[in-house]
Design a protein around this nucleic acid. Structure first.
Lengths: 119, 119
DNA sequence: ATAAAACATGGAGCTAACTTCAGGTCAATA
DNA sequence: TATTGACCTGAAGTTAGCTCCATGTTTTAT
């Protein structure tokens, strides 16, 4: 069990951000001590790290919440499954766009041309 | 040559967004008619499409501007090259994070478990 | 006992990237 | 001639995602 400060150190998220995430409904299982202080379980920390990973992949908090909600259910409805498949396509397309950007960079680095006539 | 409306239709960016991008310095070459109306050349459209691609890869407008500025110069300074290499690493790491998300999705879709004990 | 550290809350403030709005020009059409 | 439609501008408004602030309560250290 961890304090919010420890959670912050472990995840490198700011204390305010963690509180913000809780308020946003991304951390529904964080317990409180009698004095009102938050207590983070190892699985809360795991959850925070997962959020962090998705954020780095530049998913919105809303999307992250969607994933986490799905993660919680053991029997997915057909709608959830099709939603996941859609999300998967979205992620794939984002990877493709990023790959295009990478290619642009490589091209520019290789021969100094980019968005230029080949004249 | 295109009107702003045509540019909007071609790129699927809103007219306001295009004006916003111009103001932000991302479209330095857009000409004006005597009456003040913007005229978009094919290469302006190409530029908009490139911006769109980078946006989809979730680069910030500032980063996009950086790339476009670099795209314009034929001789890059060492700083520009190292900047490009840094950006490249950033993009690569983002691809990796997205790949992780994809793997999560696949795992969830495959056996319904995710962020759960394997009990 | 008193001061400092760690927590809490509600709300204000901030930046990026738009979007909307109010007011104005100009050209073509009914 | 009047009005419609496409364009212009500057400025205000919006949303997401934080971040900071003021104020207050405990617990811990001196």
């Amino acid at each position: 069990m961890y304090t919010i400060k420890q959670a912050s150190t472990l995840t490198k998220l700011s204390i305010d951000t963690i509180r913000y995430y809780e308020k946003a409904g991304l951390l529904p299982n964080v317990k409180r001590l009698p004095n009102g202080h938050r207590v983070f379980s190892p699985s809360d920390i795991e959850r925070l790290l997962l959020i962090l990973c998705m954020k780095k992949a530049s998913l919105s908090l809303e999307e992250v919440k969607l994933y986490l909600d799905i993660a919680e259910t053991s029997n997915m409805t057909p709608e959830m499954i099709s939603g996941m498949l859609q999300q998967k396509e979205k992620v794939k397309s984002q990877i493709a766009q990023l790959q295009t950007v990478l290619d642009f960079i490589d091209e520019k680095l290789a021969d100094g041309t980019w968005l230029k006539k080949k004249a």
